[in-house]
Design a protein around this nucleic acid. Structure first.
Lengths: 334, 334
DNA sequence: ATTTCCTGTGGAACCGGTTCCTTTTCGGAA
DNA sequence: TTCCGAAAAGGAACCGGTTCCACAGGAAAT
C-alpha cells in the first residue's frame, strides 16, 4: 500500500505539493499536477481514510440510526438514503435500535462522541430531552425522519392528516362503522407515527360526529398483525364494521386477506383503506394514502448536506403531502 | 472535546501512561489506572476514532455489501449481521449494489483500498475473477453469504438441495404436474441462489423421471411476481399443474393468493411449497423449506471474526441445512 | 530600478492516538 | 551487600495525511 510520500517521491515533489495536486486546493502548476496524478495512478494510490479524517476533521461518513428494516417503509427509506449518500461520496454507517435501551445508551454514550461521522440521520426515534441535548452538544448536524424535534431539520409526513384523509374518504362513502386496525391500547407500544395515525382517525370521526363508534383494534403494523386483528373484529356478524382503516398497508392487506377468508366481500361488504402505498398495494387493489419513503430518504440527505455545507443555515422541516390513491378496496355503503 | 492529553494532564501522568491505563495494555499501577479512569470520566473523554485507526491500523468497522434490503431474506440477514457486530463493538458500513456497474466499480476501485474497514461481508454477489483478485490483494478478510468463491469463507444454504427437497415432497405426495414459479428464461436475470433453485427443481424431476413435464414460469421473486406468474399458469383449465414450487416464499404466497382468486382450492386442488420460511409463511399455512437468515448473519460475523483474530486460520464454509416445514398448503393428489 | 503582488514549492507543525525504548525504582535472590 | 529482573512511567517517534508559513522567482505596477 503506497502513501502520499511514495507518490511525492515518484513525482519528484514534496508531500505538501503532492497533497495539493491531488486535492486541487492551493497553487500547483499544471505540469506538476499531471506528474503527480500520473505517479498516483501508477502506484494505485488511494488516500488512507483515517489519516484524512484525522487531518481534516471530517469523516465523509453519515450515521443512520434506524429501526429494523423489516418494514417496507424503512427498507425503501434506507434505499433512498443510500442512493443519495453514494452520489455525494459519503459513507453510510448503520446503527439499529432495538427495544432494549442498552443499544440506545451505548449509541449515545460512545458512538456519537467518537466523531465517527459528520452528520446523523435518525429515523423514527423520538430522542429524550437528555439525548437531544447531547446530540446538539456534539455539534453534528442531525436530520430526523418522522418525529420532529425542535432545533433540528426533519422530513416527515403528516401522519395525522394521512389517517384523517383516509378516514374521511370512508365517511364520504357513507360509512359510519369504521374500525382502525393497528392501534394499541398501550400507547408505549406504538411508534410515534402510528400513534399520530390513531389520532388522525379519531379526529376525522369526531369531525363527523362519529366519535362514539370508534373502535381501535390492537395489532402490530404487519400483515399477520392486521390479519389477526381483523379476524377478531369481523368474527361476529353483529356489530361488524363496514369499513376499516389500516395503520399501514401491511396491516390493511392482512385485514383484506382475513375478510376474504371469512367470506366477506371487499369492497361490497367491507371497505378497506391503508396508508403508505406499499409496493403490494397495487396487487391488492388497495385504496391508500401514498407516501414516498425513497424520496423522503433523498430529501433527508439533501437537508443534511445543506447543514454540512452551511452549518449556520436555518433548520428546515419538510412535510411531504398526503395523497389519496383510490383503487378498488373501497366502495359506498350498501 | 477533550483529548487523551487532557486526560493525562488532569491525572498528572504522561500521554503514554494514560493510553496504557485506558486500553489495559502494558504495566500501569492500580492507583494510576483509577486516577486516569476518573479523569477520563470527568472530562467525558472518548477516543477519536480516526486517530485510533491511524495509529493501530484497525478501524473497528466491517463493510457489508448487499443488494437492496427489500426482500425479507436480506433484511433479516442484515439484522443478524447488525446484532452480532454490535455485540463485538464493530461498526457497520453499508454498501448497496445496484444493477448499474458504476456502483460496483467505484466500490472496488475506491472504497475497498481506502482501508475504511477491517473486513468485508459480501452478500449475494458473485465477484468476477478480477474483483476477487483485488479483494484478496487488499488483504482484508472476506466472508461471502450465498455464492461461494474459492479462497474465502462463506456461509450459504444449499439452494439446490432446498429446491430439490421441496420438489421431492410434492412428488412423494403423488404430484406429477409440478410447475416452478420464479425462474427465468434469461439466466442473467436470475440471482445466483435463484438459479440454483431452478436446478434443484429440475434435478428432483429428473430423478423421478418427470423431466419432460418441467414448467418454469418467469417471475420476479416477489409476491406480485408470483401472483402474476400463477395467474398465467393456472389460467386455462387444461394442462393446469397440480402443484407449484415457489422460488421463495414471497413468490409462493403470491401464487397462493392467485389460486384463491381463481377459485382454486389450496391444498385440495393445488399444492404449493415455498423456500425460506418467511415470517408470513405461518399466516398462509405455507409448506416451505426453512432458512434462518438471521442466524446466517450471526454465522457470517463469526467466520469473519475468526479471520480477523487469527488471520492465518483456514477459510471455512458453513452450509446451513435445509429443513422441510410441512404446513397445510400441500396435500396428496386427489 | 525598485516595490508589490501573485504563483509555485518545500519544510515543518499538526491532527490524536499507540507503542517502542529508555530510565528509575523496588523487591527478592545470590 | 550486590545484582538482577519485573514493574511503572515518561519521552519521542510514528501512523498518513493536510495546512500554515516562509521563501524564491517572475510579472506587473510605480
Amino acid at each position: 500500500m503506497s502513501t502520499i510520500a511514495d507518490v511525492a517521491a515518484r513525482a519528484g515533489v514534496s508531500k505538501a505539493t503532492a497533497s495539493r495536486a491531488l486535492s486541487g486546493r492551493g497553487y500547483v502548476s499544471e505540469d506538476t499536477r499531471t506528474r503527480v496524478a500520473a505517479a498516483a495512478r501508477e502506484l494505485a494510490y488511494v488516500a488512507h481514510s483515517s489519516a484524512t479524517s484525522l487531518a481534516t476533521g471530517r469523516t465523509q461518513t453519515v450515521g443512520v440510526i434506524m429501526p429494523p428494516v423489516d418494514r417496507w417503509f424503512f427498507s425503501e427509506l434506507l434505499a433512498g438514503i443510500q442512493e443519495s449518500l453514494f452520489a455525494l461520496d459519503y459513507e453510510l454507517a448503520l446503527y439499529g435500535i432495538r427495544e432494549g435501551s442498552e443499544t440506545r445508551e451505548r449509541l449515545f454514550d460512545v458512538v456519537l462522541p467518537g466523531r465517527r461521522f459528520d452528520g446523523i440521520i435518525a429515523v423514527g426515534i423520538q430522542p429524550s430531552a437528555q439525548e437531544l441535548e447531547r446530540l446538539h452538544r456534539s455539534e453534528r448536524p442531525l436530520v430526523s425522519v418522522g418525529p420532529y424535534s425542535e432545533g433540528s431539520s426533519a422530513v416527515s409526513i403528516d401522519d395525522i392528516a394521512a389517517a384523517r384523509i383516509a378516514t374521511e374518504h370512508l365517511i364520504e362513502l357513507g360509512h359510519t362503522a369504521i374500525a382502525f386496525v393497528g392501534g394499541s391500547t398501550d400507547p408505549d407500544h406504538l411508534s410515534f407515527g402510528d400513534a399520530q395515525r390513531v389520532e388522525g382517525y379519531l379526529e376525522a370521526l369526531a369531525a363527523a360526529g362519529l366519535e362514539a363508534v370508534a373502535r381501535i383494534a390492537d395489532a402490530r403494523p404487519t400483515m399477520p398483525g392486521g390479519y389477526a386483528a381483523a379476524v377478531e373484529l369481523l368474527g361476529d356478524r353483529r356489530g361488524r364494521p363496514t369499513a376499516i382503516v389500516g395503520v399501514c398497508d401491511e396491516a390493511a392487506i392482512g385485514a383484506m386477506i382475513a375478510a376474504r377468508r371469512l367470506g366477506i366481500a371487499v369492497p361490497t361488504e367491507l371497505s378497506i383503506v391503508g396508508v403508505d402505498d406499499h409496493e403490494h398495494a397495487e396487487m391488492f387493489a388497495l385504496t391508500t394514502i401514498k407516501q414516498s419513503p425513497r424520496e423522503q430518504g433523498h430529501e433527508a440527505v439533501r437537508l443534511l448536506r445543506q447543514q454540512l455545507d452551511h452549518p449556520d443555515s436555518p433548520r428546515e422541516r419538510t412535510v411531504t403531502p398526503s395523497v389519496l390513491v383510490v383503487r378498488s378496496s373501497t366502495a359506498g355503503r350498501r
